[in-house]
Design a protein around this nucleic acid. Structure first.
Lengths: 210, 210
DNA sequence: CTATGTGAATTTATTCACAGCA
DNA sequence: TGCTGTGAATAAATTCACATAG
């Protein structure tokens, strides 16, 4: 089911709830109020309650939310209740950072394959993942990999995407700083770290603090 | 001046216009219509015109926009018309990727310093930047560095931020997957790559494409 | 008595439709 | 005639206030 009523902004916030709840669990909390979670992740409590209400509400009035149960519900909404296998394409500096990134586990992702064009890299093993040549991309479908992470130079991005589409991938996380075109029934999320950086000065105060 | 009327969403889009315009310049274009730019970056033309209108409008009716002039105007709005020096804290995998990232130049950023706690790393030079010990963070103010990029483990994030605040930094790009607290007059933008990843499955279609 | 869940009110952002200028 | 710039209309998201359940 695809909870059509929920605003995109709500969907955007759900992963941050998940992250906060995982941290709270680590700290030994079993349950939390919307106020407590709000303080913890820097947001308002009514926003949290409203977000949950789009899916029917997950809490107990007068008490709060059972964290473990809440995590399970949010994961189900985001379809993170099953492990998703992802392939990394492009094992440069950014690709290496992706392979080393410890934060994917919380969301049920597993980077199960890595690809690169460079013959020097192919065959090597990085963070327990063997690097394959891009000619092997066609094997993704039968390996059950339906998500790709693109960390190739901008010039190669669109071509890489085209090959991934042919390989049956349904979702792409694009780190290349460019707009790419895909068939309508495929979701692409582009992250350009420089672009977030670029709006920082606008919001910075004029004079230094303390 | 701080164009108070412009929506935050407009500010969020300006860097992507900048990116697209830089690419168009590379391709030899001198001017562009809102329709042309819209097609190029995957957005609607009226959104672009509306965004520019908050600042008075930058084009010529019946003709379009002079790209070079437009770039200059947007950079001024975002305060990217001066070079900003940034310091990287944490030279792990992600930090290395930041140092190697070629995309900052477009926006007028220069990663002018790098810091790490590891004695093995201090003293080495990576991508023309010498790695210093975190005890040197106090020198940032007099070196004219007012932006910091944090790529340290989550546990160290808040403490790092506190030191950066003392060092006079006014803006922080935080790659650590956690919420951090800062004095109100300091801007923090947090990027958690796993969080963007986490909403991908929600938007993915059920069956594989072609 | 506490903290959730939710309609209603408000604010914010997008889309439209066309007036205005080259 | 062509494309920008913008008020007005629509849509979306946030905030509020309180009824409701435990």
């Amino acid at each position: 089911m695809r909870y059509h009523k929920a605003p995109d902004e709500t969907i955007r916030r759900l992963p941050s709830y998940l992250r906060g709840l995982a941290l709270l669990l680590d700290q030994g909390y079993k349950s939390i109020s919307s106020q407590g979670l709000a303080d913890f992740i820097g947001i308002n409590p009514w926003q949290i309650r409203k977000d949950f209400s789009y899916f029917g509400g997950f809490g107990t009035r007068g008490v709060g939310y059972d964290i473990e149960k809440l995590v399970k519900q949010i994961k189900k909404i985001l379809r993170l209740d099953v492990v998703h296998k992802a392939a990394l394409v492009g094992v440069g500096n950014l690709g290496l950072a992706v392979l080393a990134y410890p934060g994917f586990g919380v969301y049920g992702f597993e980077v199960a394959a890595a690809f690169d064009v460079s013959p020097q890299k192919v065959g090597r093993k990085v963070h327990n993942v063997a690097i394959e040549g891009v000619s092997e991309l066609g094997t993704l479908r039968k390996r059950g990999i339906d998500i790709a992470i693109i960390a190739v130079p901008r010039e190669a991005a669109q071509q890489t995407v085209d090959e991934l589409v042919k390989a049956g991938v349904r979702g792409i996380l694009n780190f290349s700083p460019c707009y790419i075109t895909v068939p309508k029934k495929l979701k692409v999320i582009t992250i350009d770290i420089a672009m977030d950086f670029a709006r920082l000065p606008y919001y910075m105060p004029r004079q230094a603090g303390a």
